[in-house]
């Protein structure tokens, strides 16, 4: 699956989950790592110059191994926090894996702005 630029319509899609990272090297590495860790999903990227949304549909996995590989240097997942001012969806954090998810796919209608 591909890394795609997020359209405004896609941004309103109710099932998106994943981190918001400050623009820079780390954000680039996170995009690639999320692509590696979620082989069945498109990675939707929204670049607002200062911050970057890195989202997938339903669940978004990020492993320490992939992040290190994409960053090209040792790095612990906990350090993600330094440049992560927000994230979308529920979160589960373990030493070697972060997982963003929803329990109910298709719940809510955030795109419905009436």
């Amino acid at each position: 699956m591909a890394i795609l630029e997020m359209t405004p319509d896609a941004e309103a899609s109710p099932d998106l989950v994943g981190p918001v990272i400050r623009a820079g090297n780390l954000a680039e590495a996170v995009i690639e790592a999320v692509a590696l860790d979620n082989p069945g999903s498109d990675v939707l990227v929204l670049d607002r110059d200062d911050y970057v949304r890195v989202h997938t549909l339903g669940t978004c996995r990020l492993t320490q191994a992939s992040l290190q590989a994409c960053l090209g240097q040792p790095c612990r997942l906990a350090e993600l926090e330094i440049d992560m001012p927000s994230f979308r969806g529920r979160l589960k954090t373990r030493d070697d894996e972060y997982l963003w998810f929803y329990n109910q796919r298709g719940a809510g209608t955030p795109g419905d702005q009436r």
């Binding site: 941004e11 309103a12 109710p14 979308r88 969806g89 529920r90 929803y102 809510g108 955030p110 795109g111």
Partner: peptide
């Protein structure tokens, strides 16, 4: 507000 409060915040509460 639509990006952060409606699409981002409210959706999680609905979950």
């Amino acid at each position: 507000m639509l990006e952060w409060i409606v699409n981002h915040h409210e959706r999680v509460l609905e979950d």
